[in-house]
């Protein structure tokens, strides 16, 4: 809802909680989360949609929140890294978070929230059968997240840069969870 020429009031359901926040119309969803709502788990790596550090789930799909104006997300449902554990029903850590720790799929940790949110989005895409650039038969798509191999996971996770080079651990962690239950739990 437009408040004046430069500001609006935006309603978002964030990590299961309804929030209303006044935003500068120029504000991105990322800056709204970080600066307006104190949810600094989503990271700003490039502000250009080139690194994936800001990835959150918006209405169940992964988005670069730096490319999304907050006003355009009005009414949306957002899951940030702070809410990922809650997806499993209020558990301590999501299975994917545990797998990241076990496979040391992180170093500095700055890309990690985006990697985890992106992986959840990627697994959901695979559950819907969506093909990737490396899927053999793109018209047939894929048979769920459990069917993904390392080649597919690498491709699907290539929108998230990890300069520390933890890709091997990231792929192993995603595969472990995808094989277990497609990341649904």
């Amino acid at each position: 809802m437009l408040q004046d020429d430069t500001r609006s009031e935006v309603s978002l359901r964030i990590n299961g909680v309804d929030r209303t926040v006044g935003v500068d119309n120029r504000a991105t969803l990322l800056d709204t989360l970080r600066e307006g709502l104190g949810l600094t788990g989503a990271k700003k790596g490039c502000d250009h949609g080139q690194c994936g550090a800001c990835t959150v789930l918006l209405d169940g799909r992964r988005v670069n929140s730096c490319l999304q104006l907050a006003v355009a997300a009005d009414g949306g449902e957002v899951v940030t890294i702070e809410g990922v554990a809650g997806l499993e029903g209020g558990g301590d850590l999501h299975a994917l978070q545990r797998a990241f720790l076990e496979h040391d799929a992180l170093q500095c940790g700055y890309c990690t929230p985006g990697q985890i949110c992106s992986a959840l989005g990627a697994m959901a895409e695979a559950e819907r059968g969506w093909p990737s650039h490396v899927t053999g038969d793109t018209s047939a798509g894929v048979a769920g997240a459990a069917s993904l191999d390392a080649y597919e996971v690498r491709e699907r996770m290539s929108g998230n840069i990890c300069r520390c080079g933890a890709y091997g651990g990231i792929v192993a962690a995603v595969l472990e969870v995808a094989e277990a239950d497609g990341g649904r739990s």
Binding site: R34, G38, L39, T40, G41, A42, K43, K44, T80, I81, E82, V84, A85, L93, Q97, F100, L101, E102, D104, L106, G109, Y110, T112, P113, I116
Partner: peptide, 21 residues
């Protein structure tokens, strides 16, 4: 040993320089 600060990093609790309110 698993990183002692790993949990903070996978939950978004780790606080970086721009994140002190």
């Amino acid at each position: 040993i698993v990183r002692v600060d790993g949990r903070a990093k996978v939950t978004g609790a780790a606080q970086y320089a721009y994140e002190y309110p």
